[in-house]
Amino acid sequence: MECVLPSETALTWLPQAARLYLAHTEGGCSLRELARIEGCHPSTVLRQVRRVETRRDDPLVDQALARLGAQARTALPPKEIPPMTATMRIDRPTVEDATLQREARRVLRRMNEPGAFLAVARDMEKAAVLREGPDGHTSRVAVVDRAMAEVFALKDWIACRSRGRVTIYEITTAGRATLKRMLAENEANKNGQADALAPFGDQHRDWETASDEKAERIRYNRAESPLSILGRRRDRDGKPFLTPDLVAAGERLREDFEVAQIGPRVAQNWDRFLTGSDRGAFQPGSGPCDGPRGARERVASALRDLGPGLGDVVLRCCCFLEGMEQVEQHMGWSARSGKIVLRIGLQRLKLHYERLGERAGMIG
Rank of each mutant, 00 (worst) to 15 (best):
W157S: 02
I158L: 04
A174Q: 14
R176M: 10
I171D: 00
T167M: 05
T172N: 07
E216W: 03
S162C: 05
R163H: 12
E208G: 03
E208L: 10
G192M: 04
R163K: 13
A196E: 14
Q193A: 12
E208R: 12
E216A: 05
K214L: 11
A188E: 10
T167V: 14
D202Y: 12
D195M: 07
K214E: 12
K180A: 11
G192R: 06
S211Y: 00
G201N: 11
P199R: 06
K180G: 09
S211N: 05
D195N: 13
N191G: 12
C160T: 10
P199L: 09
N186P: 02
R163E: 14
D212F: 04
R176P: 08
T209N: 03
R161I: 09
V166H: 11
E216F: 03
F200Q: 12
E187P: 02
A159L: 06
A174K: 13
T209D: 08
I168Q: 08
A177Q: 11
D195I: 06
I158P: 03
D156V: 06
T209H: 06
R163T: 14
R205E: 10
T167K: 03
G192E: 06
A215T: 03
Q203P: 04
E185T: 09
M182K: 01
E213P: 00
E187S: 15
M182L: 15
G175R: 04
H204L: 09
E187R: 14
A177G: 07
N191H: 12
H204G: 03
I158A: 02
R217S: 00
E170I: 00
N186A: 15
R205I: 09
L183E: 15
R181V: 02
T167G: 03
I218L: 14
M182Q: 10
A210H: 12
Q203T: 07
K214C: 04
R217D: 02
D206T: 03
D206F: 01
K190Q: 14
S211D: 00
R161G: 10
K190A: 14
A177T: 06
S162V: 08
R205G: 00
S211V: 01
Y169Q: 01
S211C: 04
I218P: 00
G175F: 01
S162H: 07
G192V: 05
R176G: 09
R205N: 06
H204W: 08
N191E: 15
R217C: 00
A174I: 06
Y169H: 05
K180F: 06
G164C: 11
K180D: 04
A198Y: 11
E187Q: 15
L183H: 08
T178K: 14
P199V: 08
E187A: 15
T167A: 13
R176W: 08
N186R: 14
I158D: 00
D202Q: 13
A184W: 04
T167D: 15
T178N: 11
